[in-house]
Simulated scan of single mutants.
Amino acid sequence: MRDISVGYGPVRALRRVSLDLPEGTVVAVLGGNGAGKSTLLRAVSRTLSFQGGALTSGSVHFGGRRIDGLAADRVVAAGISQVPEGRQIFARMTVTDNLRAGALGATGSRAAKADALRRVHDLFPVLADRGAQRAGLLSGGEQQMLAVGRALMASPRLLLLDEPSLGLAPLMAARIADTIREINAQGTSVLLVEQNAALALRLATTAYVLDVGEVALSGPADELAASDEVRRRYLGVVDEDAAADATRGTGAPPTLRRWEADR
């Protein structure tokens, strides 16, 4: 992504955002509510228009090809699938039919789609066991598995994940995280939007922090995890000296130079 700006009518949601995702890696995007994280994913998957948004400047390239002018279905055919926030499964359809729907935009043969289904069943055996069950009767964690499995049915080279741990119990969130690692280990790149910063930084090699539609900070995930600013804002960690300063009311906590400059 290069200098991406996105608006919803008069509201500017992203301002000149640039992001790189090396092939085979996991890149995390962090930020509070309204920071523009979901908008960033929609700019890649070309689904902005479904929410009344539009790309106003910048470009998106994938695998050496410019894709910001493609329709959403052509982006899927190009090798990008998105798991939306809130899962958005087809509740009245069976689990198997939800998975079949995920393969509709794929360009592979029947054999390739059958291989994709076997991969999903290997990752999530419960989906094979409950194939004939209505998807709306699954638990929240199982529905998240189904949403991820549905996206994998198109055999993407890049998987966009929007808040995969949202609303899940810690144990289920950990299972989803393990699955993301396995998906990545199998060769699929991952762009992960996540409010659970601790989880995201454990999974990612690189991370970006969005603040009111702009990149406030970026770098290796382990370095951001060690940053006092990120720890204070997103990990809920306050060191003893910072806590003592706050108690004495001696001034504002320290901020990173980059963050201060961007504000």
Rank of each mutant, 00 (worst) to 15 (best):
K37L: 02
L19K: 03
G32F: 01
V6N: 08
D20P: 04
R12Y: 00
S38R: 04
A43H: 10
G24A: 12
L21N: 07
P10N: 07
G36E: 10
N33S: 08
G9M: 08
L14Q: 10
T47R: 11
S5N: 03
E23P: 03
D20R: 15
G36F: 06
N33A: 07
G31E: 10
V29D: 05
V29G: 01
A35F: 00
V11D: 11
D20K: 12
V11L: 15
Y8V: 08
L41Q: 12
L19W: 01
G31A: 02
S18P: 08
T47M: 13
L30Y: 05
P10H: 05
D20L: 11
R46T: 10
G9F: 05
G34P: 07
R12A: 05
R46G: 13
T25V: 02
L41D: 03
V44K: 07
R42S: 10
T39E: 01
A35K: 00
P22T: 10
D20C: 05
R46A: 15
E23M: 10
S5Y: 01
L19Q: 04
L41N: 13
L14F: 12
V29W: 07
S5H: 02
R12P: 00
T47H: 11
R16W: 04
G7K: 13
G31T: 01
E23G: 10
P22I: 09
P10V: 15
S38Q: 03
L40P: 04
V27S: 05
Y8R: 06
L41G: 13
L14T: 13
S38Y: 00
G24V: 06
K37T: 00
L21G: 05
K37Q: 04
V27F: 04
T25C: 02
N33T: 02
A13M: 01
L21A: 15
V44P: 01
G36K: 08
G7Y: 06
D20H: 14
L19N: 04
V17M: 14
G34N: 09
V26I: 15
S38F: 00
V6D: 06
S45Q: 09
T39V: 11
G34E: 05
L21V: 15
G9A: 07
Y8H: 10
A35D: 01
R15K: 11
S38H: 02
V11Q: 14
L30K: 10
G31Q: 04
G9V: 12
A35R: 00
V6R: 10
T39Q: 05
K37D: 05
G36N: 07
G34I: 03
S18R: 07
G9R: 06
L21P: 04
V27E: 11
A28P: 12
S5L: 00
